[in-house]
């Protein structure tokens, strides 16, 4: 078996008339944390949804653990998803269940484990994210960072091989941000799984990932290790990493001449 847990070859995706992704090539090894970065609307979330099987590629191949996602039927997809976890942008915790029940959800749905064992497993997962003491709380009583950590505990409940993170750092204060980043790294290392992080938080993710893909306008603009990315002189990467206002991504939305809009004589 190859070491490439995820392998994407010449993948394209069209949504209606619009080509969202064109000719993407991407690989992720076991035990790696991969970041997919890019400005808003560049297609990186679409890429993540393709990996999760929520969308089917229009052309090209997407292999997860050697299985072609494009060819799976509903049952096959659900079978594969049991070995996948996904962390949604704001956690997507079930609001009508307590923290404990949220983490126990998959164990109850997919296994026939006795109650004591479920209890032990849930406490183990909650302990891993440091929230064992919060098992009684309802999602509405949690802060944004805590909700994200509970969701992380929930997505590792069945010890998945792959976790997909959709903007895990969005809307977090600096402390929670650091905590979440470290957790992703630590869980990936201890559980030996593969993590794909979609984010636009450059500084935090460059600290913890193994490899970075930059997506812009549906193509991979640049890739490399964090050190390579930091040293990169590609205009797009440079603009992105340093957060400059002007560069290949313009500040102004394409418009007609300013003077014309103001009604000034040319």
């Amino acid at each position: 078996m190859s070491d490439n847990f995820i392998e994407i070859r010449d993948l394209s995706f069209t949504y209606g008339q619009r080509m969202v992704l064109k000719g993407i090539n991407l690989t992720a090894h076991r035990g790696q944390v991969i970041a997919i970065m890019g400005n808003s609307g560049c297609g990186k979330t679409t890429l993540l949804r393709l990996m999760g099987g929520a969308l089917k590629p229009s052309s090209g191949n997407l292999l997860v653990d050697g299985i072609d996602m494009g060819l799976l039927d509903q049952d096959g997809l659900y079978q594969l998803r049991r070995r996948m976890g996904m962390l949604f942008q704001f956690g997507a915790l079930f609001t009508d269940m307590s923290v404990f029940e949220n983490v126990a959800f998959q164990l109850r749905e997919h296994t026939d484990l006795p109650e004591e064992m479920i209890r032990d497993l849930v406490f183990m997962k909650l302990n891993a994210v440091g929230l064992r003491g919060a098992h009684d709380l309802m999602p509405s009583e949690l802060s944004g960072g805590m909700a994200r950590r509970v969701a992380l505990a929930r997505s590792i409940a069945l010890d998945p091989m792959l976790i997909l993170y959709d903007e895990p750092f969005a809307g977090l204060d600096p402390i929670s941000l650091g905590v979440t980043g470290n957790l992703i790294r630590r869980l990936t290392d201890t559980l030996g799984m593969t993590s794909i992080v979609v984010t636009h938080d450059v500084q935090e993710s460059l600290k913890m990932v193994d490899y970075v893909y930059f997506v812009s306008e549906g193509v991979i603009e640049a890739q490399g290790t964090p050190a390579e990315i930091k040293a990169s002189h590609l205009p797009y990467v440079h603009q992105f990493v340093h957060g400059e206002e002007n560069g290949p991504v313009p500040f102004h939305y394409p418009a007609s001449s300013y003077a014309e809009d103001l009604g000034l004589p040319a």
């Binding site: 999760g52 998803r81 976890g85 996904m86 915790l93 609001t95 998959q106 749905e109 997505s155």
Partner: peptide, 22 residues
């Protein structure tokens, strides 16, 4: 509607649980 808006339905699908059934 709120479960859908807060991605709870999508999360359930990602956990291989059919939201129609559950």
């Amino acid at each position: 509607g709120l479960m859908k808006a807060t991605e709870q339905i999508a999360a359930m699908e990602m956990m291989a649980v059919d939201p129609i059934a559950r």
